[in-house]
Nucleic acid binder design. Structure first.
Lengths: 137, 137
DNA sequence: TGTAATCCCTACTAAATTGATAGGATTAAT
DNA sequence: ATTAATCCTATCAATTTAGTAGGGATTACA
């Protein structure tokens, strides 16, 4: 299941990408428009900023803005920041690999093989999709 | 994340598929061999039986057996029984569709489109993979 | 210089889910 | 009868999720 955090995060990024002015976009504006609890969204955008996807400006007339062009923001990066590993099991994760306790030899593990296939197909989608695609721009 | 339930279930199915004799396979044997807590596994196999994937025989010399050939047991069915919906959001689920609270029009939702792509690719993998593939037979 | 608007940060909490465990009821072979 | 198995229900601790609360720090602008 996709977490609300990820869903809200994607919606917020889309909103920012679609905003035409070059002024930063305020959390309150996004929260209202996308029906997201504002305080919850604050935390999400903070995470996205810390990861380098968003930049921010504090104080009056502050807000958030994209650090790159929408067409250069890949879903692989966004999803890893918001949702964590893309793989469904740590033993097939590229970025967060972990050995399974119960698997003596993972190359013989039937689950392993299946999950590698799923991971590769999901990665393909996320690698070929940018924020520009999501935003329809 | 794949739940332990699903992981254990897949391993158990593989184990049964590989067992050559036509005697039913006992939970205790699978649990020991695959390092799965036996009581936990009992519940999982029960679920698989109720869904029609496994059959069982009670009493002494009882156990579980496949109801179809491994090559006819598709991962779509197994995954739906063990893990639930394949889609990452209910609004793109084929079998468990639910409208999102926060989405006025899901055809305009950026998350929706992305998640349909992920779902289709994952489905493709699960549709093209059978228990025979997992079991290497 | 003051004030309002805005992001930033930490801590807390309720509800749901997960990964089990416990204890027995039922069934069937010997 | 005894033994070995599935079947069933209840319970539980740990974790995660989704959100709330309360304020601190920074900036624009009157």
């Amino acid at each position: 299941m996709l977490s609300k955090k990820t869903k809200y995060g994607l919606k917020a990024l889309t909103f920012i990408a679609r905003s035409e002015s070059d002024m930063p976009v305020q959390v309150s504006v996004i929260a209202k428009s996308e029906q997201i609890p504002q305080k919850f969204l604050e935390g999400i955008l903070l995470t996205l900023r810390k990861s380098g996807i968003l930049g921010s400006k504090k104080g009056k007339h502050g807000g958030y803005y994209l650090r790159s062009l929408p067409s250069e923001i890949k879903m692989t990066d966004v999803m890893r920041v918001l949702e964590g590993p893309i793989a469904m099991v740590p033993c097939v994760s590229l970025n967060y690999y972990e050995k399974c306790d119960d698997c003596p030899d993972e190359h013989k593990c039937s689950v392993h093989k299946l999950m590698i296939e799923v991971r590769d197909n999901t990665l393909k989608v996320f690698r070929n999709t940018t924020l520009a695609d999501l935003s329809g721009i």
